[in-house]
């Protein structure tokens, strides 16, 4: 654990990061920006898992392993999203949300 830092301060930090991500997710009008916001939300959740593991159950490893799995899933999700975005751009020459009406492959 970090000397002199309680669990409350770290949870405050991750809460703020999570809601900044939600704000970006709701206000952005562009697929890549939405992807960036989703990454931020996922990162806040990863830090929560690890912090709770370290502060409350330091002799276990479940939080660390779950965050490793979340990182792997996030990498897979980003790669698929980027390929979908590139394919969409080829078909309709735009990555704005309002132009994305058909996602038929």
């Amino acid at each position: 654990m970090i000397e002199g830092i309680s669990i409350y301060e770290i949870l405050t930090l991750t809460t703020i990061l999570f809601f900044i991500g939600v704000y970006g997710f709701l206000t952005r009008r562009n697929l890549i920006s939405i992807l960036i916001s989703v990454e931020m939300i996922l990162n806040a959740s990863i830090v929560n898992f690890v912090i709770i593991n370290k502060y409350l159950y330091p002799d276990m490893l479940q939080g660390v392993l779950f965050s490793i799995f979340i990182i792997a899933i996030a990498a897979a999700e980003t790669a698929l999203a980027v390929s979908i975005i590139i394919n969409l751009y080829r078909q309709i020459s735009s990555v704005e949300v309002k132009d994305t009406e058909v996602m038929k492959f």
Partner: peptide, 17 residues
């Protein structure tokens, strides 16, 4: 994974699109 992989992937897609 994040700083090395995902950021580079997103930058590539931004530059392509």
């Amino acid at each position: 994974v994040y700083a090395g992989g995902i950021i580079v992937l997103i930058i590539f897609s931004v530059l392509l699109v």
